[in-house]
Structures are given as C-alpha cells and as structure tokens.
Amino acid sequence: MDMKTISFSVNGKPQKVHVRTNWTLSSVLREQLGLLGTKIGCGEGECGACSVLMNGKTVTSCLVLAVQADGAEIITIEGLENMDGTLHPVQEAFVEAGAVQCGYCTPGMVMSTIALLEKHPEPTEEEVREGLTGNLCRCTGYQKIFEAVQIASKKMRRG
C-alpha cells in the first residue's frame, strides 16, 4: 500500500496529511479532516455535490486523487463563513431565495456559484445556467437557485 504525505492549504489553514495514494481528495476532506460538507452523490464526477475550489477553480473532488492536491489551495463549503459566523453573500442568498431544499447538492452548488460569480460578476441567465450545469439538483428545479445567484451577484457588487 503506497502512502504519501501531502501538504496543502484547506480553507486557509495549512494541513499535512498522510494519505494512501488511491484516496480521493473528497475522502481525505471528509474522513481525515472531518469536512463533511463536501457531499458524495455519485463518486463519478457527474452530480457535482463534491465540488470544491482547488487553486481557485471548481473541481469534483471525487475525481481528484488526494496526492494531486499536494501543494494546492483548497476551499470547501466550511471555508466560506467569516470568523464571526456571518455568511458569505452566496450562502445568504441561497437561504433568502429558498434555493435549498434537501440541501444535499447545496455545498457543491454554492461552490460553483462562487466560481461563476468570480468569472461573471453580473451573469446573464445563460452564464448562470452554464456555470451550474455540473451540479445536479433534484428538489428545486433550479428556479430558486437561479434567483439566488442573481441576489448574490447584487450583494457582492454592493460589497
């Protein structure tokens, strides 16, 4: 069994973890670091529930081997809140818009929204749809998620 020690930053904090080479990033986040907000919906990169930011870009962490994250900067859903517990504007918007039903897709959806708004601060409907294509939601029919993205966009531009 090959093992490797990886050093990476998770939510701004340095982490050093001894991992097996066949572990995925999602399993290390969940099982080694206790960051259960990263969800597993399919394990095949098709539902997007495990999306995290890796070096500023969203990836499905179930398709990334943990060893590939050596040296990377990872942001998970747990890394968005401020120290004082105030929410990130995207999180606030999801709550306000009712964009969360069962909530299992939500962490991934929020991470994708953050990346989307980074790329398109004032996204068109088309850009929103394209930006969230990799995140399946079965509860909301996406309608209130689309609303949430626009609310978040306004909040973030207001600063």
Binding site: G45, T60, V64, T133, G134
Partner: peptide, 9 residues
C-alpha cells in the same frame, strides 16, 4: 465538454 468542473480538470 462536460461541465465547468470537468473542464477545469
């Protein structure tokens, strides 16, 4: 190709 996440990887 795929989704944003797929295209990033």
């Amino acid at each position: 190709v795929g989704s944003v996440q797929v295209r990033n990887l």
